[in-house]
Amino acid sequence: MTIIVTDTGFRVDDFPGVIRPLAEIEQIQEGDGVEIGPADDPRALVGVLGQVALIRVRFPAFNDGRGFSHARDLRSFGFHGRLRAAGHVLADQYAMVRRVGFDEVEIDEALAARQPEDQWLARANWRDNYYQGRLRA
């Protein structure tokens, strides 16, 4: 079972659609999800952003920061759907994830056991003390 983390803590995954790999971009239907990895180019999704309901950005390692730029880029292309960071994301990165435009994080049970809910909730105040927010306003 995977766990979804939001500003209110842990919950079960309630996304009803299928999540397709980028290679199946041709088969995407209204309401589907799609998944990209760090090395993928999110520009490939520009034509289907209106149909896609969720984009899952994979973080194979917490220190591979490409997913943060992917989120920024997807938002700048006009994606307004659900944006999910999935994989090895740390509670200590939760504020970063939210600030670049992700809505939620998907982690596995082992990580959730080591970094329980309170450690994530501690960064639910990610809107505070935010230099970037202040500079861009």
């Binding site: 917490f62 220190n63 591979d64 920061g65 943060f68 730029s69 920024r72 990165q93 504020a95 970063m96 994830v97 600030r99 670049v100 003390n129 935010y130 230099y131 970037q132 202040r134 500079l135």
Partner: peptide, 13 residues
């Protein structure tokens, strides 16, 4: 300094 501090996109370059 203010811009780069805790910049969410660029902590894992």
């Amino acid at each position: 300094r203010e811009w780069s501090t805790d910049h969410p996109e660029f902590q894992f370059l």
